[in-house]
Design a protein around this nucleic acid. Structure first.
Lengths: 109, 109
DNA sequence: CATAATGGTAAGTGTATGCTTACAGTTAGT
DNA sequence: ACTAACTGTAAGCATACACTTACCATTATG
């Protein structure tokens, strides 16, 4: 599969996005994460598995507690993917503007 | 809803991602877009509606033909969203590394 | 004016997936 | 060793949603 796809799929779900945004403040355990969300702890655990596979979060265990943190790797890949799209979009847009200019100039005569 | 969410949801589907990637080359009509994909034209039309609402593509009509193009707006917003996450992830990571250093220094004495 | 070309919309269907409950595993403490 | 704390996994269910077929709308063309 192509770059960025797994990461995008992981970021598609609203609950997972809420989790990621909570992790922006500080690393959290599964239980902590679940407290602030309208879903049960097992649901959070399942979401974390997906986010971890997409390298959007990383896990660090201390005893029975599993701390989850944002992972720059997956986010960087996602960033690169979107960035490339954005540059192509800009290029395409400027091509269109130039074409419009030519067209108007030709109509004028 | 928060920034970037609608755009992420739009980019979640594999077919829509394939469409977006085809539009990186050049603007295309609905029919053209559908030819290179394993789904019917109405499906493509429905996907385009979602991508357009997320401002990831823009539409330009010439007669009966509807040309679709990448739209920098939605992609820029998406970029900003991911970028902010990535920076927080980096900050969080460096905090963790620093904490680890302190811990090792304390253990040594 | 009739027909073709192009594309959006409605209705129905099948499936992926997010959620819950129940259970099992691992580590810390007493 | 036993219990508590913390978490992952399995099974089942309900809903969202991507897809198809059928149909309608608009614009160009003869």
């Amino acid at each position: 599969m192509a770059y960025g796809h797994k990461e995008l799929a992981a970021m598609a779900d609203p609950t997972r996005r809420a989790m990621v945004e909570r992790l922006r403040r500080r690393p959290m355990t599964v239980g902590e994460l679940a407290e602030g969300l309208p879903v049960t702890r097992p649901a959070v655990s399942q979401h974390l598995k997906i986010l971890k596979q997409a390298r959007i979060v990383s896990e660090r265990r201390e005893g029975t507690r599993h701390y989850f943190n944002l992972n720059p790797e997956g986010l960087l890949e996602l960033r690169g993917y979107i960035d490339a799209m954005w540059e192509d979009a800009l290029a395409s847009f400027s091509r269109y503007v130039a074409a419009q200019k030519r067209q108007r100039r030709n109509l004028r005569k």
